[in-house]
Every structure is written in structure tokens, then in C-alpha cells.
Write a protein that binds this DNA or RNA. Structure first.
Lengths: 216, 216
DNA sequence: CCCCAGAAGTTGACGCCGTTAACATCGAGG
DNA sequence: CCTCGATGTTAACGGCGTCAACTTCTGGGG
């Protein structure tokens, strides 16, 4: 198992080892989630000794942490793409709502299409970030900021009251994330046939949209 | 680290090793989540050799799986308790809604009070259940069945249309579970001060209740 | 009462993991 | 050309899950 993915390199020095290790690690995460990101295996696939990785990552956790950030970035791209695919013509209020809905669909599409990366994106990191930045920093979760922006659009176009707006990104994120987790790694995915899953998925987003837009 | 929790046993045979191992494993899960359930450490704490555990569990995964079921059971108890604490007097429709809300609060209370167990309850098991039972079996997630029952109450008391009912347990479960995950092991818990967290928690449940009860 | 078969627990070993320390190799600048 | 820092290697340690072989205990039939 774990045949080297690239031909054994010719020169003693690799030239771009850090990126090669990252690519290899992301591949493993894609296939097997965070548990599959094993330092020795990552190095093996690049054709390098395990300890070489320590020139670029202080520990295995740090490598995993970078993979995690890469996965979060891909999730954000995916969502952005889904949002941008919504046609912008018609009633602005409807467009804003459609874009919000599309963000939720994009989130779930990513989780289903790349379960390993999704799982990695939200796996607990045992890494000790000593209180980096201010506590309000969500930069690692760009999805959150996209949700926020789209919710603002909805408010501006009159689809939602200011009062409903507060905290709405977290309610929305919770619903979508919960469904993604329960489906891809939880009991839902294990017990529900695909067509039923698709149905309850739509149902879940409906409930969310109703809950968000309903007057107080 | 990991001093034996009990005095070294006197007799060669333990007498109740299986339960002792389970208790030890649950303790570890409570403190450190699924990753802390390490076979050798579990055995060490009971004062027994690691391989002794193989008399009762075919592999470490199987032990973890039993801990997982125990954690799910505790979650269900917690929810049930929260639901039963709702006073039953007054308008039955209001009572039904209050009980539904209480179940969500109980779910979250458990997740916050016992993050290690909560995380263990929903951790991915690499154990190969060869299609045990029919695919619709949610017996391991008693929380799901409680939600279902409470939603039926709401429908019967007129708080919700039959049409809204279908799939509602999954929408509700998703929202509550997502919030729990994002708070206890995700970015929410890391970045939000407790009072803000408590606020958005209420907000999230509000959105859910609105989405569930709003006419189609 | 003894004895012995099988249940219950132990020891030792293997291969895997992350990590450290000491060593080898390359290539760029004096 | 030669050195020295950057880059990569080998060897080793302890911890993990797991297997095979061994030891210790206990209950039920002669």
C-alpha cells in the first residue's frame, strides 16, 4: 500500500518539497479524512524520508492544520461559485434569496463531493494556537463571511427584517453544517437511501429559509 | 500520567473486567473525546494488561463503538429529562411547542456539559458494520426518535401542518446538531465569548422553531 | 477430595506511528 | 576551489494496536 506517487527524484534536494508535501497531504485527506493524513505516509508518497518534513512543519499537527485551512478555502471557493451561478436578473429581493439558498446548496455540494476534505476542514485541531488574534476572528471560516454578506443583501432588498438579521449567519451555518455532518459522517448518510436524503435536504433548507425570513 | 484509578486488584481474576474497562473508557472519552480512548491506557487504569481487553472486545474500535453507544444513550437521557421538566399545564399547543424547544435545549446542554462524550457520540466509527438491520434503523440515535415524537405532539395540537411535518425531525436535528458541533469543537466556541454564544444559541433555536411551524 | 479443562489474564514480539539527534549531501558565494 | 548553511538521511526511542504463546485460576465430574 502507499506506492510512491511520483518517480523517485533524481537530485538529492527536492526543490519544492513543502508544496509537494502539502499536495500529498491534501490528497490523503481527500481520500480518508483527517485520520489519513499520516506524516510518514505523506513523506513516503513524495519519496522522501519522514523526518524531511520537519524542515517545513514543526510537527504533524501543523501539517494537518495547513491541510485544514486549504480545505476551508476550497469550501469557500465552492460556495462562491454556487452563488455566482445564480442569474442576477429579476426582482432583487428574489435574487438575494436565491443567492442565499445557493450558498447553502454549495456548502452541501462540497460536503458530499469532497467528504474527506470537508471532514478535515472541521476536524478538531489539537494544535495550541495561543489566542491568535482577537477572539472574533473568523478568517479561517470564509464560509461564515459569505453567509454574512448574502444575508446583508437579503436585508437590503427587503426580504428580511433588521431584527431577524442578528445572529442569522450562525443559525444558517448551524443548520447547513449540521445536515452536512449528519449526512456525510453521521447516521443520516448511513441509514437513508440517496433519494430520501436528497428530499430531506431540500426540506431542511426550506425550513431554514422560512425561519430566517419570517417576521418576528 | 495515567495513574491507576483503582488499587491494584488482589486476585488474578478481576471479576468484572468488561464493565471496568467500559467505565474507564467512558471516563477517558469524557475528558478527551474519542481520541483519548486508547486501549492501552484504558487497561492501564483498570490495572490490567492491554491484551486482557481482547477477551471482551475484538478490537479497540469495538470498545470505542460501545463507548459511543453509551454516550448516545446519555444524550437521550439528558434530552428526555429536559423535556419532562416542562410543566404540562396550559394550552396543549403551547406545551407541545415548549417540549419541542426543551428537547433542543437539552441536546445543547448535553453538548456543552459533556463535550467529550458528545464528540464521541458522533465520531466516525471505522468499524465495519456489515449492513446491520434495515437501512432505516436509527436505534443508535435515540435523540432522533424523541424529536419525532415531540413533532407528532405539535402536529396533533395544531401547532404545525402535516405538510410541514415531513422531514422536520431532520431539519431540527441538523440545526441543533450543527450548532452543537460548531460551538463545542468548531470555530464558534473558539471565537465567541460565552455571553454572545448564549445569545446566538437562543437566536438559532428561534429560527428553527419559526421555520418548523410556519405554514407552507 | 482431587484434578484437569477451559476461562481469564500475562509476557513478548511485530510493525506502525511521531519525534529527536547525529550525520550526509548539495549548491551558492567568498 | 572550498566552505558553510540549507536540505535530506539514518538510527533510535517510546507509544500504539494486535497476535501468539504462555501462566494462573476456578468450577464441576471422577
Amino acid at each position: 500500500m502507499g506506492a510512491p506517487k511520483t518517480a523517485p527524484r533524481t537530485s538529492y534536494h527536492h526543490g519544492d518539497l513543502r508544496n509537494a508535501l502539502m499536495d500529498s497531504a491534501v490528497d490523503l485527506a481527500r481520500l480518508g479524512g483527517p485520520a489519513a493524513v499520516v506524516l510518514r505516509e505523506v513523506a513516503r508518497r513524495v519519496g522522501v524520508s519522514a523526518t524531511a518534513a520537519y524542515r517545513y512543519f514543526s510537527a504533524a499537527d501543523e501539517l494537518l492544520d495547513e491541510v485544514k485551512h486549504a480545505a476551508l478555502a476550497r469550501l469557500a471557493e465552492w460556495i462562491e461559485k454556487a452563488v455566482d451561478a445564480v442569474p442576477a436578473d429579476g426582482d432583487p429581493a428574489d435574487v438575494a434569496l436565491a443567492r442565499l439558498r445557493a450558498s447553502a446548496e454549495g456548502y452541501l455540494d462540497f460536503a458530499f463531493a469532497e467528504p474527506g476534505l470537508f471532514q478535515t476542514a472541521f476536524c478538531r485541531d489539537d494544535l495550541e494556537h495561543p489566542e491568535e488574534d482577537e477572539p472574533e476572528d473568523f478568517s479561517d471560516a470564509a464560509a461564515f463571511q459569505i453567509f454574512s454578506r448574502l444575508l446583508d443583501e437579503v436585508v437590503l432588498t427587503g426580504g428580511m427584517s433588521e431584527q431577524c438579521r442578528v445572529g442569522a449567519e450562525i443559525a444558517g451555518w448551524s443548520t447547513v453544517h449540521g445536515f452536512a455532518v449528519l449526512s456525510t459522517e453521521g447516521p443520516l448518510g448511513r441509514h437513508l437511501p440517496p433519494e430520501v436524503l436528497a428530499f430531506v435536504r431540500k426540506r431542511t433548507i426550506d425550513v431554514l429559509m422560512r425561519g430566517l425570513t419570517r417576521a418576528e
